[in-house]
Structures are given as C-alpha cells and as structure tokens.
Design a protein around this nucleic acid. Sequence first.
DNA 1: GAGATCACTGTAAGCGCTTACATTTTAAAT
DNA 2: ATTTAAAATGTAAGCGCTTACAGTGATCTC
Lengths: 344, 344
Amino acid sequence: MNFGSSMTDIDAPPTLDDVAREARVSTATVSRCINEPKMVSAPTRERVQAAIKSLGYTPNFAARSMAAKRTFTIGAIIPTMENSIFARGLQAFQEELQRHGYTLLVSSSAYRSDAEEEQIRTLVARGADGLLLIGYDRDPAIYDYLARQRVPVLVAWTFDDNARAPSIGFDNRASMRALTEKVIKMGHRQIAMISGFSQQNDRARMRILGVRDAMAANGLDPASLDPIEVPYDVQAGAEAFFRIMEQGPRPSIVLCGNDVIAVGAMRGAQQMGLSVPEDVSITGFDDIEIARVVSPELTTVHVPHRQMGTLAAKELVGMIEDKRQGVSRLLDAKIMDRASVSSV
Amino acid sequence: MNFGSSMTDIDAPPTLDDVAREARVSTATVSRCINEPKMVSAPTRERVQAAIKSLGYTPNFAARSMAAKRTFTIGAIIPTMENSIFARGLQAFQEELQRHGYTLLVSSSAYRSDAEEEQIRTLVARGADGLLLIGYDRDPAIYDYLARQRVPVLVAWTFDDNARAPSIGFDNRASMRALTEKVIKMGHRQIAMISGFSQQNDRARMRILGVRDAMAANGLDPASLDPIEVPYDVQAGAEAFFRIMEQGPRPSIVLCGNDVIAVGAMRGAQQMGLSVPEDVSITGFDDIEIARVVSPELTTVHVPHRQMGTLAAKELVGMIEDKRQGVSRLLDAKIMDRASVSSV
DNA sequence: GAGATCACTGTAAGCGCTTACATTTTAAAT
DNA sequence: ATTTAAAATGTAAGCGCTTACAGTGATCTC
C-alpha cells in the first residue's frame, strides 16, 4: 500500500521541509504560519495551509520542544488514582490546560514521597513547563531543585500563603474545625478520629489540628483525641472503626480523614450491627461521589474539585507564559450536612 | 546564589557535552554510558558517572527523542477519569510501564469519539511510542492513520480476536450472558436493562447482546428487552430507574450496564421506597469499589482490572521493542454473587 | 526622487542528543 | 614478536524545528 506520500522518497512522516518545498516557501515561513500566523501574508498562508493539509503534516513535537525550549507539557503528580479523590479536580485541570494548548502528564506517587521525588525529576527531565503538586509536605531540597531548574510549581488541595510555592486550595484545618464545631454543637462530646497518615501529608495533619482546634475552643481536651492513622482505603477504614469501638469508651461520633475512610467506617458499623447515625455518627471529607451513594448519605466537607482544577490550570499557565510568580488563592470548602450525623 | 555550576558559563542545565568534558571522554561515550553501560569499560564508566553526579546532569528528553526517534512515552486515552472504572487498570498499566522505563501520557475523551480522535493525533504528534485505547469502536480511518504512522496500538477492556488491533480484555457479551442466565435461573422473567450509550461503545453494545443471548437461550423473547441508554453516572441511573418503574409492567430485575448506573438505580429504588432485592433486584458490571460499599452489596461482574493493566503494558512494550504484532489475550471476568439479587 | 520605514520572506545557526563508521587500544592466537 | 580479532573510544552527521539576522520590495515622507 502507498498512501499518497506524493513524490517524496519512502514513507516517513512529512516534515517542515516537505511542506516548505510543496508550498514553495522557506521553512521559516511555514514555521511562522503555524506559530505566528499574523506574521505571514494571507496568500502565502493559504498556500502553506493547503500544503500542510495535502501532506497530512503534523509538527514533530520533540524537534519543536528542542528548538523552542518549551514543551507545552505540564506535569501533575497526585497521590493516587485508585479512588476518585483527585479525579474530578484533575479532569478539570486537564480540560483547562487543553484549552490553552497544553498537554497533561500525570503520574501517581501512591502517597510515597520517594516515588514522588523520582517522578518530579522525570517530569522535569521531560521538560515539563510547569508542575502541579498536591500539598506542601516534601523535602525542601525538592523546592530548591525546582527553583534551580526554573520550573514553575503550583500546589493544590491545600492553602498556605507563605510557603515555598503558590497554592490554589482550601483551608483543611479551618474546614475540619468548622465541621467539628458543628458536631460539638449537636451535642457530641466523645469524639474519635480516623485519619490518613499524617506524615508527609499536610492535608491529613491539618485536619487533625482542625479537630483539636474545635475541641479546645469548646472546652474539650484536645490532647484526648488520639487519631488512628490508616491508608486511605475502605477496608482500612472499617478495621480502624472496629478498633475504636472495641477499645475503651465508645465515641458518639467518628470523624474521618476523608470520604473513603468514612465509607469504610460505615461498613464497619454495619458489620458490627451498629446503625448510623443512631448508634454512632460518622463524617467524611472531600465530598466525592461515594459520599452520596452510601446510606445514610455521608455528612462531609465539600471540596470545590473542579473549580480548584480549573483555577490551578489557569494560574500555572499564567506563571509559565508571563514568567511571573504565582498567586495563591483560597477557595471555600463547604460543610455538607447530610444524614450520617445525628444530635446527641 | 551559584549552585556549583563548576567553571562553565552561566546557569543553564548541564548537557552531555559538559559531562564529556568533565570526564575527559567524548560525548558518544557518555551517551553509551547512559544507554548501553556494558559497552563502556568499568573505569571510564565510573569516571563518567562521577561527572554526571557532580554536575547534576539529567538528559534532555526532547533531544534524546529526536535523535533516537523514540520517546519512551506511551499514550492512553480512556473514556473518563471521573469515576474509577478505568482507574485501577490504568494504575496497574502505569506501574508496569514505569518498570520498563516508559512514561504514561493519559487523557480522557469523555466518551466523545471526536475528542478521542483529536487526542490520538496529539499523542502521535508527541511521538508516543505506542497507544492504549479502550474498546474497538472507532472510525476505521483512525486505524489506517495509526498503521501508516507505524504506531503500535493495543485495545483493552474488550476482546476481539479478529479486529484491527490486538486486545487484552474480557468478553463483555459472554460475561453479561452468564450473569443474565444466572438470574433467569433464579426465576427472573421480567427483565429490564439500563445501559450506557451503545453507539461507539462496543462494551455497552456487547453487554446488551449478552442479555439477549441469555434470554433467547431460555425461552424469553430477546426483542422484548428495550434497554434505556444513559450516561454512566449515578444520577442518570436513578432517573432511568424511575422511568422503568413507572411505565408498564414492573420488572423483577434491572440489569445495569455498569456499577455506576447500578448504584444509581439502587438510589432510585431507595428513593421510591422500594427495597433491594426484596422488591426489585439490581445488578452491575465492573466490580469497582463502589459495588461493595452500597448496601446491599452489588451483584456484578468482576473485571480483572489490575491484571488487564499489567498485561496490556507488557504486551505493548513488547510490541514496541520487538517490533512485532501484538497478541490478543482473553481474560476471565467472574460473576460476583452478592446481595442485590434475590430469587423470585 | 532619495532616503527611511514597513511588511514579508529567506538564510542559516543552532537546540542536545544518538549512532554509523572510523580509529585506536587491548587481548588472543600463532 | 607479529598478525588478527575484539573491545573501547572518538568523529561527525544528522534528527526537525525555531528564530536572530539579513535581505527584498513596496510604500511613505518631505
């Protein structure tokens, strides 16, 4: 088979040169046609476009990045793809990037900071024009490295105005505090918590602090809170719930570090024959789809996933194209008061 | 600040040349040290490695791909990232790729074939060494294009031995047939179905056919099945469930095209005050996490997500590196008999 | 109508790497 | 020792693009 590779030699994809020849212009003109169309006169532009079309030309990405020292690629490293905690936000991020002509390179670190570090280096070596990272907690040396390589970085899913990188996110601590105060007002005094691992995870840590803040502000002893830390996974949540209910005085409410754990806790309750919220109340965090699918529906903190993704993309593209510092942005996270919590 | 960029000029990242100079060898040797270490004698290799380390050298990806005509990038286009249908499989795919030194470029088409086509072209232009696509259904011209560009393609989440591309997947039709036969044997005669859109989606189409196969084989009229097609989303599932229960004779069972729809149907039932499975049975497909989180737990078809991802990665890498045709592989999908179906 | 200005277009020098081929060094064989 | 093959290294030609710089006419300016 020969698919109309005009009179040229074999079969390799057409290059800029081929187009230039076909359109009887220089390669520079073709390049300008593609990148800065307004620099080229209308007649030539049309001729070039026709040539591009007839040859089925697509620019070679590697060559372009090498010459332009830009890749139009943005890297994102998320802790996990296994559940949808980051999915909606990332999807929105991607859609917005695409709108600006960028491609997203995603990888997931499985919540391991060494894996994350390696992936950061890979992404940088691949010439990512910018990076989206989740949360702040990481070796300062990484921020140094990134600064030295002049790769713009934006942090999401958290907010901290005076950190090493600009962030688009919400206040994990304040949100958790608000949620906790709310349940305390509903009469809960015996509070237990199942958290994600707080090491190298500022979101988890801040959420714990938020609970303590609320306790302290309401005459409870913050030191009495002894969060169990588990992986973000349903089964682990269920197991932690068992442990909590078996040892010592039973809490009237179990606050969970996120929805996945909370759903696990709900399963655990069900398996123990406890009903939620009559026997025990449970809350989550994130408001992912699963929260509205369990019954009772889960009381949780709604994170503005899509908004965060979209704004992060805009900001990062801005940082890259205008070579400016990014500006942090605090978004609202709202308490979704559903059926998994009752008054005491 | 000056971060030890030895005596060289300004500040740009070190290049192969810098390393070569530092190690007092030619660039070719440095290159070999990185790509084919065994071609270099031990002493020189050590010298070069020391130089690499001391300069903090990382190869420039664009340059490397241009020279080698390889990118070590594999593209995957999945229909959605919003729920976890593809997440586990993709995660496994990525992990396996990483093990072979490849990077994954993911994008999602939102189940739109025009978006998918554009993304395929983008990925090819970016020099993807291979592509993972979900399902067969797409314009044949795309397969031609891919063949002409000599980009290996592997299809997953479905299996068809004599299609345009090799596939690693399971038999959607047979699995759905098996599930349906099982519920028929349990006494269900009034069968309804909520499917995903079957246009441009062979998985959805095959699942419908599977239901009909089972009906025909058991003395029911396959033409009497009139699947409602909806987007794969909880809310849509609930709404479709309402429609089904409101019009005409109520089915004893509602077979759903996947777990997300099924969970929607369960919510719908709950909102209508119907209990599952006493008043109506419901089944799903995929066995994603959500299936075990709802109550009652969902009877569904277990898809070997991780296995599929891992094998797909191995096969695709094999196709690329050995320049051979891929071989298709049929995996088992198993019925998970849980609590959302009762006998009639 | 000579010089200045402007709008296009072309020339050609890289970008940082890989690799075919040439050359040198080392080891093996006689 | 000398020849010969094998192993290690070097030389240099690109890979396909972008872009600084240098034309080339056409249009203004006074």
